[in-house]
Amino acid sequence: MIELTLMVLLNSIGDKFCEYRSEGSDTYKALLLAYSDASEKYGVSEVKKVISESEALNFTAVSVALLKCPQHL
Rank of each mutant, 00 (worst) to 15 (best):
K48H: 15
V8Q: 06
L6D: 00
L9M: 03
A38Q: 01
E3K: 10
G43D: 05
K49G: 01
K16P: 05
Y35K: 13
L66T: 09
Y20G: 07
Y42M: 07
I2D: 11
L33W: 01
E53V: 03
S12N: 15
I13D: 00
S22R: 09
L6Q: 06
E3W: 03
I2K: 07
E46S: 12
L32G: 14
S54E: 07
L4S: 02
S39A: 12
Y42W: 13
P70D: 14
Y42T: 07
T60C: 06
D37L: 11
I13R: 01
H72E: 14
Y35M: 12
Y20L: 08
S54M: 02
F17H: 10
A56W: 06
Y35S: 09
E53S: 10
G43W: 02
Y20R: 11
L9V: 00
S52F: 10
Y42G: 02
S63G: 15
C69K: 00
S36H: 12
E19N: 10
K41I: 08
D26I: 08
K41F: 06
S22Y: 06
D37F: 11
I51K: 01
S36I: 01
K49F: 01
D26M: 09
S22V: 04
R21W: 04
E55K: 09
K68R: 11
G43K: 01
F17E: 07
C69S: 05
Y20V: 10
E23G: 03
G24P: 08
D15T: 13
S54F: 05
A30F: 03
L67E: 15
E46K: 13
V64D: 03
V47E: 02
N11V: 01
C18D: 02
A65W: 03
N11I: 02
T60E: 09
P70Y: 09
S25V: 06
Y42A: 04
S45E: 15
A56F: 10
L9C: 01
S52T: 14
T5S: 05
Q71K: 13
L31Q: 15
I51P: 04
S22Q: 09
E19C: 08
G24Y: 06
E53Y: 05
N58D: 14
S36G: 13
E3G: 03
R21Q: 11
A65N: 03
G24H: 05
I13E: 04
V62E: 10
V44H: 13
L10H: 00
K49A: 07
E23I: 09
A34T: 08
F59V: 15
E55N: 09
L4F: 04
N58H: 11
K41E: 14
A38P: 00
E53L: 08
L6A: 00
C18G: 08
K16D: 11
A30N: 05
Q71Y: 07
L67D: 15
I51S: 04
K29V: 15
G43A: 06
